[in-house]
Simulated scan of single mutants.
Amino acid sequence: MHNEALEPKIKLNNDIEIPVLGLGVWKASNAKAATAVSMAISHGYVLIDTAKQYGNELGVGNGIQDGLKVAGKNRDDLFITTKVYSGDQGYQPSIDAIDGQLERLQTDHVDLLLMHWPVNDLYNETWRGMEQIYHAGKARAIGVCNFDVERLTDLLKNASVTPAINQIEFNPRIHQQAVVDLCRSKGIQIEAWSPLGNGKLLELPLLNNIAVAHKKTSAQVILRWEVQSNVIVIPKSVHEDRIAENADIFDFSLSADEMDQINQLNEEHHSRWYDDYQWYGNPDGDPNRIMQA
């Protein structure tokens, strides 16, 4: 299936283009990630987002190969993102880790490499390592995740390359306006993880009412609101019907009034935040899982 809407359409600060919607694979096993990625590519997805922390880079790499074969496409048709694992932070460790990540993903470069979390006392050195990875051509763009105003301001004072993206928790109930404002003032694109709020927003009456008016689902309304807010979205799913549904958001628009109504849902209540994530290892499981098929 060819879907022009899923092809690159936002230009990053280094002039490369990224799709506004992609597939996330957090919590998916290697097997499920492989299937989901292959299905997503067959449905026209270009952007695939994974991380070493997820333990499924190997599955994503297999899914990419399968999906490209079925779709008759090649590597350059995709936009692949992975992330620097917090256990690999620091200048040399981040450089040393990238080759293994590329091997699992079966590619010689990623289109975007993100720092997964701002590990205190290490993130500036990690960024310096990521700049080397970028200059070596192993990542076409580099960025960060989960950086607040304080840490991002500090990083920008030390960085030679301005991050292309800050991937943060963002959805109708979590706007992080101060972070968004800083990023936009510096030309840093916002990308949303948990764009659907872990599914907890789907039953909100306001969203249901707007969805009915447009003959869409609440999930599609949320994703449309985010895209119209100039935010890249990477909803996670391993179900083909949901993968297809999430992509079907480019044939309608929300009115200014509908956008404003959804804006009013903001509560700034994070599901998890970096005060709980100043870690150096793997808080979510066995690090050996990274290499398991």
Rank of each mutant, 00 (worst) to 15 (best):
H2V: 15
E4F: 13
E7K: 15
P8V: 15
I10S: 14
I16M: 13
E17N: 13
I18Q: 04
I18E: 03
P19S: 12
P19A: 13
V20G: 09
L23K: 15
G24Y: 12
V25I: 11
A34H: 07
A36W: 11
M39G: 03
H43C: 14
Y45M: 03
K52Q: 13
Y54S: 07
N62V: 02
G63H: 08
Q65M: 09
D66G: 01
A71L: 07
G72T: 15
R75E: 00
D76Y: 03
I80C: 03
S86E: 14
S94Q: 03
S94L: 02
D96R: 05
D99M: 02
G100R: 01
L102A: 04
Q106A: 08
V110T: 11
V110H: 06
L112T: 00
L112Q: 02
H116W: 04
W127Y: 15
G129V: 10
Y134L: 10
D148A: 14
D148G: 15
E150R: 12
E150P: 04
L152R: 04
A159N: 14
A159H: 13
T162W: 01
N166K: 10
Q167Y: 00
F170R: 06
Q176I: 06
Q176W: 03
V179N: 00
K186W: 00
G187R: 02
I190G: 01
E191L: 06
G199N: 05
L201Y: 03
P205W: 05
L206G: 11
L207C: 00
A213L: 09
K215W: 07
V221Y: 02
I222T: 06
E226W: 01
N230H: 06
I232R: 02
I234L: 14
K236R: 14
K236N: 06
S237P: 14
A244E: 14
N246E: 06
N246M: 12
A247T: 05
I249V: 13
F250K: 02
F250T: 01
F250E: 01
Q261N: 10
Q261L: 12
N263E: 07
H269G: 08
H269E: 12
S271L: 13
S271A: 13
R272A: 10
Y277K: 11
Q278I: 05
D284W: 09
D286Q: 07
